[in-house]
């Protein structure tokens, strides 16, 4: 025998409210983040990141050291719902694609900022890794967030390349 819910209307409205909030606030946060990403990418365009493991010969490397940039992100309620519906029919889950793209760009920018802060002017051997963080609630079933780590070897060049 289940007890009558105290606020039947609230029970119905709450998920709708959360959806609307996810759509409105989550969307606004995403657009603002994309704007900031574009500006920062322009600002840091002179600090090259390369996946090569050895410096080009023109770079006379003076100093080197490990640098890391990371970010943990999560998806909003609206997008999570959209992703769920998408999983019923299959295909591209754009909601997650855009989240991961934003997170990777953010991690790479943080890598550049860390490298600059440590006095480096280029990063070699850049690698990106992705890890899912299990939620503490719901027996670790849910996803609390996704971590993107960008790391590489920062170097100081005595000369500009080319």
């Amino acid at each position: 025998m289940e007890a009558e819910p105290a606020f039947p209307l609230l029970r119905l409205l709450l998920p709708l409210l959360l959806l609307a909030m996810g759509w409105l606030v989550g969307g606004a946060i995403e657009r603002a983040h994309l704007r900031r990403l574009r500006l920062r990418e322009i600002h840091w365009r002179r600090l090259p990141l390369v996946t090569l493991r050895e410096p080009p010969e023109a770079w006379q490397v003076q100093r080197a050291g490990l640098v890391v940039g990371s970010v943990v992100v999560s998806i909003d309620y609206w997008k999570r719902m959209m992703a769920f519906f998408r999983s019923l029919v299959g295909g591209r889950v754009r909601a997650y694609e855009s989240l991961l793209e934003r997170a990777r760009r953010e991690a790479l920018l943080r890598l550049k900022e860390t490298a600059h802060g440590a006095g480096f002017d280029a990063v070699l051997g850049v690698r990106l890794e992705t890890a899912r963080l299990a939620s503490a609630s719901r027996d670790g079933e849910g996803t609390a967030g996704v971590e993107i780590v960008a790391f590489g070897t920062g170097v100081t060049r005595s000369q500009e390349p080319g």
């Binding site: 996810g22 946060i29 943990v72 992100v73 309620y77 503490a136 609630s137 971590e147």
Partner: peptide, 21 residues
């Protein structure tokens, strides 16, 4: 974790976790 749970509704960066890791 509770803060992250709230942040999960609107999405975006979970700063507490970023710092922790």
């Amino acid at each position: 974790d509770i803060m992250a749970g709230l942040k999960n509704l609107v999405g975006g960066e979970l700063k507490g976790y970023t710092e922790l890791l």
